[in-house]
Write a protein that binds this DNA or RNA. Structure first.
Length: 490
RNA sequence: GGGCCCGUAGCUCAGCUCGGUAGAGCAUCUGGCUUUUAACCAGGUGGUCGUGGGUUCGAUUCCCACUGGGCCCGCCA
């Protein structure tokens, strides 16, 4: 049903004429956009383009085919009189969705449309499927994600989205490289998970006696061991996995780049992030201001700095740096936070969301967190209730998280012991005790700044998307029973 | 985990309120047309109406359950 008999007949017809519908290669000389952008240079010259036939308008002895390559579309103008015998057979057996090669002369049609006047037509891949209609295309969200290949054909802006995402990733790499960072790869499959609070995915390694292993929730502790070893500056493009619900800004697997720099503190990274984002936006969009969902976001440095514990105290009268246990319940009720287990961490976090998150449309450093929110962070100089940590927000989304890393091994052990107690009390997000990391840090870790830079969320901002799924090529989907028609049978 | 909305042809949708086994446009097929671009003109093909159950003489339509998706809320980045 999904496969069109007429297309199978075309394959037969082509083969009968000695034309292979699935050949090996084709010499492409240029792309659609290049021709259109530099038309006067190309006009009258011969080119070879290749791409998918997206529209086909036939009128007797002349056919117009809109050929789409990765740069865009260009019309090919095909007069039967200009074609050799083979090309005529290809044309007779061509349909929308086929991948074609067109060799011809760059020209304009009578109506002025920039075109390739075909001299030779080559079948590069005969489609068996029918493309979505040319007006509405493919808009059903589920169909778009499940069939991203069709989505890309029909909605070329999707490809642009992923190009921008890729550019941002390269930009971050370039900057970290230029600082002397060594790109490393650490285990995704881990014995123990840590470096964050989250439920892990588990798996089994059969040859190690069916040992239980975890997909990493963070690569932090491994990167710190490299710092302890003397690498000084290391980063990793890290796909992390957290076994939690997805929503518009969370996906169970997501990408962040973590970077550690010895002898620096979190102030260093505020400057770095300002440079990184502003230079990217300027380079990519030609301006420091971009539109996001009808709002203008201005990346001109310096970014706003929100000392949020102070600001929260001013607005709500609550000082989260020192909440007593008795206050937690009272605040949860008075502020209508609706927390089932109002511990200090969640109360403070909820108060931030309630009062301050809405103020972080523009790039904003939210800085200095209560120490109890930061088990891997050094206390703030001059205020032992706070820790030297910032989160960078853009468009009300957290896009980076940075600490002056905790390097005191005895204090670190204490923080781990506390986490272990939370874990035993039933907090299934608290990571397990990691003696290996503790023994590493006991060798002595230099003063170090660390940062995790989200890739997904900045990509959303730069491409004006409100769902993280739009910047992830293949978002996870529940499985559906395979229908027999899609199995490739006639 | 809770609430709301949705699933009909390859795609985009109508029909359901008020039950009588389906309709449009595009795609596809046949014919016509040598400058179209949502080409046009004429004719045709194409659907176990998400799945299962119930009510009914009869269900795409009403009811229930399940399933897949979207949005919002709660939680992690």
């Amino acid at each position: 049903m999904a496969i069109d008999n007429a297309k199978l007949e075309s394959i037969e017809a082509l083969r009968k004429a000695g034309i292979e519908p699935y050949p090996y290669s084709y010499h492409v000389t240029t792309h659609a956009k290049e021709i259109k952008d530099n038309f006067s240079e190309f006009e009258g010259k011969e080119v070879s383009i290749a791409g998918r036939a997206m529209q086909l308008r036939q009128m007797g002895g002349i056919t117009f085919i809109d050929v789409q390559d990765r740069s865009g579309k260009i019309q090919s103008l095909i007069r039967n009189n200009d074609l050799d015998q083979k090309s005529l057979i290809v044309l007779a057996n061509a349909s929308i969705g086929d991948t074609l090669g067109v060799r011809g002369i760059v020209m304009k049609s009578k109506r002025g449309e920039m075109s390739v006047g075909a001299r030779e037509l080559t079948m590069l891949s005969k489609t068996l499927r029918t493309l979505p209609n040319k007006w509405q295309g493919l808009t059903d969200t589920e169909a778009r994600y499940r069939s991203r290949h069709v989505d890309l054909m029909m909605n070329q802006e999707v490809l642009r989205t992923f190009e921008i995402r890729a550019k941002f990733m390269h930009h971050v790499r370039d900057i970290l490289d230029s600082r002397g960072g060594i790109e490393v790869e650490t285990p995704i499959l881990q014995d123990l998970y840590g470096g964050a609070s989250a439920k892990p995915f588990t798996t089994t390694y059969h040859t190690l006696d069916d040992k239980q292993m975890f997909l990493r929730i963070s690569d932090e502790l491994y990167l710190k061991r490299l710092i302890i070893g003397g690498a000084e500056r290391v980063y990793e493009v890290s796909k992390d996995f957290r076994n939690e619900d997805a929503d518009s800004v969370h996906n169970p697997e997501f990408t962040q780049i973590e970077y550690y720099e010895a002898y620096s503190d979190y102030e260093t990274f505020m400057k770095m992030m300002e440079d990184m984002l502003s230079s990217f936006v300027l380079k990519t969009f030609g301006s420091l201001k971009i539109d996001y969902q009808g709002e203008t976001i201005d990346f001109t440095p310096p970014f706003a700095r929100m000392y949020w514990v102070d600001e929260l105290k001013n607005i709500s009268g609550i000082d989260v740096s020192s909440i007593s246990d008795e206050d937690l319940k009272r605040i949860n009720e008075a502020e209508k936070l609706g927390l089932k287990h109002p511990d200090r961490y969640h109360v403070a976090d909820s108060l931030f969301d309630k009062y301050l998150k809405g103020k972080t449309l523009q790039p904003t450093f939210v800085l200095d967190f209560p120490t109890y929110m930061c088990p891997l962070t050094k206390a703030k100089r001059g205020n032992s209730m706070l820790a030297e940590r910032f989160e960078l927000y853009v468009a009300k989304m957290e896009v980076a998280n940075s600490y002056s890393e905790l390097t005191d091994p005895l204090y670190q052990r204490k923080m781990f012991e506390e986490q272990e107690r939370e874990r035993k009390k039933g907090d299934d997000e608290a990571p397990p005790f990691d003696e290996e990391f503790l023994s590493a840090i006991e060798y002595g870790m230099p003063p170090t700044a660390g940062i995790g830079i989200s890739i997904d969320r900045p990509a959303m901002v730069f491409t004006n998307q409100t769902s993280i799924k739009e910047v992830i090529l293949f978002p996870p989907m529940k499985s559906i029973p395979l229908d027999e028609d899609s199995s490739g049978k006639k």
